[in-house]
Design a protein around this nucleic acid. Structure first.
Lengths: 360, 360
DNA sequence: CTGTTAGCGCGTTCAG
DNA sequence: CTGAACGCGCTAACAG
């Protein structure tokens, strides 16, 4: 039975050490101007009583304002990154009593140098912490070195570059999630022997590293467990819907018997909606991310399974981590893999309603 | 670009309304002793500026201690309820700056009247809020009416009795989770036509309502999608391991061809370990809850899938909700279904590492 | 090097 | 009915 034990305060420590609160505060914050004798005495008592500061009182007294900054790929409402952004905004609201604000900037993923340009502009606001998605490795690297000179902590989100050691990382283990997807697809396919992978190509390259890594994990599983599986790939171009339509028409004319497909990006709805338009009800599709259009397809039956990576929670957690690090001075975990969740028509409702911190 | 806009304080409101902070405080808390004129004026400005109090400053100033209480079924370390308890303890630590403490009490699920007896004892500590799992409907009902007379808010965890309208509920939608389990099992079984359901019987009845509801959901799906499936049931008695061994021996002697099984309680490991002992590698098993022994079976391959219901998070969230309600005066959601997550050897690691708030 | 003190935003007296 | 004043635990400026 936990007794409501009295919390130890700075005042108590000071009394026990025979010094004033000012001195205790100085050793707590490692500031100079304390004699070795006092420091030792205070530190001993601090440790002995396991002093835990009241961080809310601390934040209140310090009366500082914090500016967090975030650099994200350009996006429209309803796309993947908009969920990340929503999560951050929710966290900013939830922790508003800490006097935090968020400066957002966007960059064009496909214009070389735009990441750096937007990043510089963001730095003008002299943020206390920064969140970025390191989609472009080279530009990220030079940006990070800039941050280092300013001593600004940074968090990576969605994908990771460990060697640039960020304060922490939030995102899925892409390869493992592709591996898991393959296990599910393998069950779904029962005895079928043919499968198609739909890729999204933007500006001549795969939209993201994540997409690539998932595909690799998928192949790994299938090589191990289904060596005789026949896998086709179809390249699509999100910005050219008419052309995509023709590509799909041609593919399914050529291979009318293929009943299973997967996409490793968030645009599974493009395929699902195609199937709906063409009344193809015998096609089974898997994809990523709970965009509204994907969820609609799931409900209509044109997508069988979606793997979620909780972008909203990623956004929320990254803001929370900045608070924990900068304001509450808590230890934070460096690598935070998001769970690999499988969603189907049978469990989607409970997933969506589960957390207001991660509504999508 | 969000400007770090100044937060409105009580002082500001007072100034604008031409009154003192004391008066503003009185209208904020609906206390008496304010003229109609002042009240209206203040309320208008409050609404206009959308005043949001700094709850940390508020909690600090009020300098109150809160006692939360929780009544759980008796359990050993490693069992389901121990995860719930761990989540609560973690939350108590995380929110210790709010001056909260937790009084725990346990009851014997199978001794009539013990729930009420332990409950009464808990009330002697005059808790400010209470968390219970309403496993025994009749006793819960009479206990709740007692709480009502004291005006103590209560939260239900794991299973729900909506008509006793608790402050809120955390738990899984048991029937839907059984339905989902059936969908997965159906895929896993491929073309197989036989299946066995293992039940845990304690003191002559099914261990929990949850177990029953899951089974119902499971049947519903199978009736709809696999009408010709042949389902066996085997009743086991956790407290009589020797007897259970014989029951299983006899069952598999009689039906050696059955390759698929499921349990709707947290003791799937009992079956998994049986299979390991007997070298039966062709049996495919599903179960519930990430107890360590279940996870071990998953890793060894004697369990194929586990459905998680995040007991640690349930515990954590229920404490968090009491804080939000009693201290931070936030609105809280009445019904919080936990997501229905499917875990396999391919995604378990990332699930386990995901949140420190829900390590199991 | 050290102690004292005035706040941070809010809750709660206590005079008037 | 209202305002002023003090304190919650902590920070930081200032005086010595």
């Amino acid at each position: 039975m936990d007794k409501p034990e009295e919390r130890i305060r700075i005042k108590d420590i000071a009394q026990l050490a025979g010094v004033s609160v000012g001195t205790v505060d100085r050793v707590l914050h490692g500031r100079s101007g304390v004699s070795e004798k006092s420091r030792e005495k205070v530190e001993k008592i601090l440790k002995k009583l396991d002093y835990q500061p009241n961080m809310y009182a601390s934040a209140l007294a310090s009366n500082k304002k914090y500016v967090f900054a975030c650099l994200l790929p350009q996006h429209s409402e309803g796309e993947y990154w908009s969920y990340v952004e929503n999560g951050m905004k929710q966290a900013i609201k939830d922790f508003s009593d800490f006097n935090i604000s968020l400066a957002l900037a966007y960059y064009d993923q496909y214009t070389l140098g735009d990441f750096l340009k937007s990043g510089k502009k963001l730095l003008e606001q002299s943020p206390d912490g920064l969140i970025i998605s390191p989609t472009i490795e080279s530009e990220t690297e030079s940006f990070i070195s800039e941050l280092r000179t300013h001593g600004i902590p940074y968090i990576f989100i969605d994908s990771n570059i460990p060697k640039l050691n960020p304060l922490c990382f939030y995102g899925q283990h892409a390869e493992q999630s592709g591996y898991f997807a393959a296990r599910m697809m393998s069950m779904l396919m029962q005895g079928a022997t043919e499968l198609v992978i739909f890729r999204q190509i933007s500006e001549g390259r795969l939209g993201s590293n994540q997409q690539l890594h998932r595909e690799e994990g998928f192949y790994t599983y299938m090589k191990e467990h289904r060596p005789n599986l026949n896998m086709f790939t179809v390249n699509l171009y999100a910005k050219l819907p008419d052309e995509d339509e023709t590509i799909l028409d041609n593919f399914f004319k050529k291979y009318p018997g293929i009943q299973y497909g997967i996409t490793f990006n968030s645009k599974a709805y493009a395929i699902g909606e195609y199937m709906e338009r063409h009344g193809k009800k015998d096609f089974h599709l898997m994809g990523y991310d709970l965009l509204q259009r994907n969820v609609d397809c799931l409900r209509k039956g044109s997508i069988d399974f979606i793997i979620a990576q909780q972008p909203t929670l990623q956004g929320y957690s990254s803001i929370e981590s900045l608070c924990n690090h900068l304001i509450l001075k808590k230890e934070i975990k460096a690598c935070n893999y998001m769970p690999i969740n499988l969603l189907s028509i049978e469990n989607i409702d409970f997933y969506l309603s589960a957390h207001r911190k991660d509504n999508h």
